[in-house]
Design a binder for these strands. Sequence first.
DNA 1: GCCGTTTTCGGCCCGACTGTTTTCAGTCG
Length: 586
Amino acid sequence: MGRGTRDEAAEGSRRMSQRRIETNQDLAELLSDVAVAYKIRGRNRFEAQAYESAAAGVEHATRNARELWQQGTLTEIPGIGKGIAGYLEELFRSGHVRHFEEVFAGIPEAVFDLVKIPGVGPATAQKLAGAGVEDLRDLEMKITSGGLAGKGFSAKALEKLGSGLGELQRRSGRLLLPAAERLAAELLVHLRGSGLVVAAEAAGSLRRRVATIGDLDLAAASERPADLIAHFATAPGVARLIESGPSAASVTLHSGVRVDLLTAPPHNYGALLHHFTGSKQHNIHLRAIARQRGLSISELGVLRLADGVVLPAATEDEVYDLLEMQTPPPELREDSGEIEAALAHTLPQLIEAAAIRGDCHTHTRWSDGANSMAEMVAACGALGRSYMVITDHSYPNLDFAARSRELDALRASNRGIRLIDGLEVNITSEGGLQVPDAILSRHEYCIGSIHSSFRQPREEMTARLLSALANPNINGIAHPTGRLINQREGIDADWGAVMAACLRHDKFLEIDGWPDRLDLPDGLVREAVRRGVKLVIDSDAHATDQLPALRYGVEVARRGWAGAANVLNTLPYEQFVQEAHVRLRD
DNA sequence: GCCGTTTTCGGCCCGACTGTTTTCAGTCG
């Protein structure tokens, strides 16, 4: 290793200057990389943990970190104190951080990719880079060609590297909620079919209802864990047993999805479920509070340190009761204020799916839907909705009058569900609307949405949204960020300005429940709730069988701390008409 | 490096599993 420090410093500097820090996600990745570098340098592990905690805080922050810095409120993000805030100040002012460059210096670039491989941490990554591995492709090549022979990796270690690499490549896109739910449901049926299970459910990010799921986590209560684990390994779809012990096992499915099963005796199931639901940051914070009270929480139960007695926790409520706090709903467990609220007994009453009375974004065959208007209305009524807005796309060549006549006829013949004649209208790249105001004003309700030019700079994009919000025919903005999960990033806009405009014009932002969208994302929902911006939760259904997807939107709302009062379509029809400014024709 | 019902110092979540230098470091959730 004959590299001089000047080269190394240049390398660290390149690493900083080549990355663009625009989103909180970018910043979180930078902070995570610093944590990796700290571990390699063998610094106090708590410093590395602090950077991980800061990364998680930034990732879950409801507002853009750069904006918070401009307002001098960066340290309001949990995990960011004076030290890191100082470095970020330097980052936002100059585009680089001297200290980070020094920390990165001399650590091969490959390390930060290699740590993404399951089973590879900072130490192994550094060892691999030291053995000449240049990147992920190079590692794959060297494994197959035997290029790592004699470099201190056993045959087993190489095999583990190979399968980890395969796993990483297979799961480039994370699972959407419906796919994760289906897989979990099949596996739970298999587990329950063994007769060895007292209780079993999905934990982890699926239980917290995160928009995308990496691994599936299953928790089970059983008196015979060893037999249950053997049974688990025979589940349909299992390709490989990764590891297994007396109380836990991990498998890979043929689809490449990793599934972890943890078991506990029924009297400790609450502690297990709590542990496995996470999030990691929630658990760390909660366990620190437990220590202050002479308790030690783990998946094995709650240990009273004074006398070594394990207190029973068959349910999660019992775990939280021991800390004299409310049980935060799983959707809130991101260590973003829910622990403080639960301790103060001031957790919000989150919206429930049953509170939704109307679906206000639906499509029919008049635009790109798969079903007729009558079919959509009947299916929506069958779900128990009391009103419905039909919002076909405003295709300029659409026979708007004929469509409205059909809707009026259905209105007359359907007493069970009230219908509203709406349109979804594209916001053009210049901030205009796809069809003239004369057409929009003949409809009772219009939602504006962005379906083109997704990559405009922030200023133009924000102006585009503000212009639409200023149009009196627009009631609110549908799927505001335009993101398609695993496919397309959301637009870049000044959401503070957009939300301020919503308040000024008394207009709403939609939470689109379609699992590929989940838009607004939960972080922005929380910001909207904080500011008092009205929300509407919709299915955006293009077929009758898509109408139930609205519930995924409710879950996003819950993750954003929304109660029923924040959501307009929990209101009875007459009040919804008033609050959403529906322009009834008669 | 963060943070405060032990509040500006002195702690920092906890256990399971793997591979192996067979007593522990590394990794994970």
